[in-house]
């Protein structure tokens, strides 16, 4: 074989190896998107009963903000931590997760004052720590979820003692947010760009939906047919009709 032919054959081989990466998940299409006046937003929770919807958003820069559905800033806290990645509203308390220090902070929702702070030591990589928190009413457990390598669901009882650890689906590369909706825990994967409906007892993935946006870091359902997904890199809030209407 002449030397000059070999590069062409190598390229041909690479092209021949290429096959379409079929998606087995239903792809969602957003109906609106708004710029968010929060730097590096990393999670959000819907304020219950707010009409039009308002959200509490946490930032990678360590502060909490309240925004309108159009992304407008209503108010923001001072810097409370270093790398806030998860948020949960539970019985009027706002709990936020600082990934770097493995801490959960309890905030007064009206003033954003820190009322309590607890550490949940975890030895994973600096950017692979706790990324999400959600309350599971079926098991009466708080769930602290690590980002990746591995994705661990750490169950806490109401006294915030660790009572169980569950390995999440190994085919999911990471988790960036979690929420509760319609009787199930839902998880969001940034790297896989999917929201997943999970079994409340086993956390097995029941349904998957693709959210084709860059760097999705937070999400929430409003119960009125809307799914809101927050993009960190783009600092935008996307609205998806949900559940989606199937073409067939």
């Amino acid at each position: 074989m002449s030397l000059s032919l070999r590069p062409a054959l190598v390229v041909l081989g690479l092209v021949c190896c290429a096959t379409v990466n079929a998606q087995s998940v239903l792809k969602l299409k957003h109906s609106a998107s708004m710029s968010v006046a929060v730097q590096e937003p990393s999670d959000l929770v819907l304020i219950p009963g707010s009409v039009p919807p308002r959200f509490l958003v946490v930032s990678d820069n360590g502060y909490v903000a309240e925004i309108l559905v159009d992304g407008t800033l209503v108010r923001r806290s001072e810097e409370l931590a270093f790398d806030l990645e998860g948020a949960l509203l539970h019985n009027g308390d706002l709990m936020v997760v600082d990934e770097r220090t493995c801490r959960v902070l309890w905030l007064d929702t009206a003033t954003f004052q820190v009322n309590k702070r607890l550490s949940f030591p975890y030895g994973g990589g600096r950017n692979k720590g706790y990324e999400a928190m959600v309350w599971n009413p079926v098991k009466q457990r708080f769930l602290l979820i690590t980002e990746r390598d591995p994705v661990l669901i750490v169950e806490l009882d109401t006294a915030f003692r660790v009572v169980n650890e569950v390995d999440f689906d190994r085919t999911v590369r990471d988790i960036s947010s979690a929420t509760w909706h319609d009787g199930h825990p839902w998880l969001l994967s940034d790297m896989d760009m999917q929201v997943m409906k999970c079994d409340p007892l086993t956390y097995k993935v029941l349904e998957r939906y693709a959210v084709p946006i860059i760097n999705p870091e937070g999400f929430a359902f409003d119960g009125n047919g809307n799914l809101y997904v927050l993009s960190d890199d783009r600092q935008r809030l996307y609205t998806f009709p949900f559940p989606p209407q199937r073409a067939d």
Binding site: R100, T101, C102, R103, S119, P121, Y122, G123, G124, G125, R126, K128, G129, E165
Partner: peptide, 18 residues
């Protein structure tokens, strides 16, 4: 640490080393 996971980060709240 705890369940003998590999300790990849050490921290005291203000200072974190990976």
């Amino acid at each position: 640490w705890h369940s003998l996971k590999a300790q990849l980060t050490l921290g005291d709240g203000d200072h974190v080393l990976e």
